[in-house]
Write a protein that binds this DNA or RNA. Sequence first.
DNA 1: TTGTATTCTTGATAAATGTCAAGAGCATTG
DNA 2: CAATGCTCTTGACATTTATCAAGAATACAA
Lengths: 188, 188
Amino acid sequence: MNIEAQLQQVFDLPPQQVRKISPYFVEEQMAKGMFFLGQGQRADRLSFVASGLFRVFAQTESKEVTQWIGGSGYFITDLSSFLFDQPGRWQIQALTDAKIFSLYKDDYKHFEALIPEWNVLEKRFIAKCFMILEKRVFDFISLSAEERYLHYFEQHKAYFNQVPLQYIASVLGMTPETLSRIRSKVGS
Amino acid sequence: MNIEAQLQQVFDLPPQQVRKISPYFVEEQMAKGMFFLGQGQRADRLSFVASGLFRVFAQTESKEVTQWIGGSGYFITDLSSFLFDQPGRWQIQALTDAKIFSLYKDDYKHFEALIPEWNVLEKRFIAKCFMILEKRVFDFISLSAEERYLHYFEQHKAYFNQVPLQYIASVLGMTPETLSRIRSKVGS
DNA sequence: TTGTATTCTTGATAAATGTCAAGAGCATTG
DNA sequence: CAATGCTCTTGACATTTATCAAGAATACAA
């Protein structure tokens, strides 16, 4: 997915506006296994995934927990760290070779001046992220593990060939063994 | 909690700015049981809870699911409906008599003109809501039911005398029976 | 106050999920 | 190609949670 189409889609912008901001998104290549964001690092960029897959995870006392898997069309960053300059909470690692377009914080700061309605667009963007999480919370309190798996599989079929299932299990809030049994039961 | 102090805290605004917008938040009294937002209604206002408690819930085929309980200091609305003019997804009902301050959509629209930095403030506000949900998702995938209960109890002790436990159970993603057993086990 | 909801608890049992351990399947590397 | 790690699956068993049902406690209304 190219950066201009993606910006146009995410922010619902006309092409001429897109051309104003797209130059600030710089292309980066990430090799499989590389860290987009290491433990405790502050997020200095907001990046759109053009190709490849990333996992967003955190360390607890007892285990590593994958919060989110982001592929083409999604953005990755530690939002609270990026927006509020807090120490990072998430680590982000490339699960495959990947290409991303990164907006660095120094450039990001100038967007308000560059595009008058930038704050409105960004607000809408964050609101959409909020809605995605709201839906996800609702799934946790209203669905069984099997239903959560089926929904996730429906929406992210592409991940299942490329991502270790243990990470997907964590995103769904279950153990790898349980995911494995659900999969053999529903037959996918 | 009065509306000026609340606006100041939520939006991190100096008093003179608060005075510019606070008049647009109109006081409403809600009697216990009344619906702030009924099934399928569009959200036409964003309201801060000054006193009282509300539950935000949705109907599934099989059951009613409480997503959130909002008390003093929180805002209530159906955010996606309010921001994007979509049909409502949530119903919102007063669990006690309550006092709220409502910003109606018609007034809200003028805030950009009234306060130049309004969009920045609103963006930050929504981002904070995002962070709360992000934390909540993480709790679901990383904690046991008992731990989730203990966290929630720690943060919302005040709810437990006023809210039917079945609603809290739903927020925590468990049945009322399980919540009851956890409570008798940990002894609160 | 009394009667009627509703809510909460408790028990018995079933179902779902986690844990631990072993082995099979795959990929990566030398 | 062989050797070494991961990853995934499967089994046995423990733990957690749900379900159904009944009774106790509580709140609400006549």
